[in-house]
Amino acid sequence: MTPLTHLQRLEAESIFIMREVLAESENPVMLYSIGKDSSVMLHLAMKAFHPARPPFPLLHVDTTWKFREMIEFRDNLARDLGLDLIVHINREGVEQGIGPFSHGSQVHTDVMKTQALKQALDRYGFDAAFGGARRDEEKSRAKERVFSFRDAQHRWDPKNQRPELWHLYNGRVRKGESIRVFPLSNWTELDIWQYIYQENIPIVPLYFAKERPVVERNGMLIMVDDERMPLREDERPEPRMVRFRTLGCYPLTGAVESTAADLPSIIEEMLVSRTSERQGRAIDHDASASMEKKKQEGYF
């Protein structure tokens, strides 16, 4: 009997983790960000609970600044799979007119993403939330547990993490406390793409190269996705062949010039690329160790 391949091992591990969460928590939810990692996570959930549907809702924290194609993809997918989708928007943030252009990436991310997430988790009383983060993405994530304990204020304490041995995950929490669970912890970006290719998992078309209207700003190619983007006098959106390696709020997500229009080309491009995927994200550049700090404040 041949040993399990790398991807088979990863798949089985993620399924095991998801089943543990479902069995041990009272009110789990899956954070669905519409990106490729979320797509893989959802695909794994379909496998984990088959022939049942994933027995928990999906939660999308909508900052109102996501790419339009992402929202369209999200709504179609939830409808096609018959899944329970909760979309949460921080209404106070909207009323205050918070946005990345007017308030900068830090304030926008904090109010519309981190605070909004906490609002949603509190409102529905979720005691376990799946997230698609991977340990290879960033240094502080490399040290985070698969089951990451959060106190009643949603804070992560990197110095006081529960030891995680063998496959014995400890999901016990008291009222108000919660667990963030990362079933893709041990996957790499390459694993994700290989798995998408192998399993034929649908992803948002923004990952594939296409001519899109972009402006170059602070060294990043920003796609002009709607009329809310204020253009400087000298800025003219010009059509360029671009794609996205990671998806978030369109004003904060840099495109890369590319002609890779199908999965093999994307993977090929990634293999020869010399920059990591988070390079396209404004949020990580704000401060050294910024992710660790954000996570301590409740960011996923």
Binding site: P3, L4, T5, H6, L7, R9, L190, Q194, Y197, Q198, P264, I267, L271
Partner: peptide, 10 residues
């Protein structure tokens, strides 16, 4: 290449 990758063990 992908077929080769998929067959790797850990």
């Amino acid at each position: 290449y992908l077929r080769e990758q998929a067959a790797k063990t850990t």
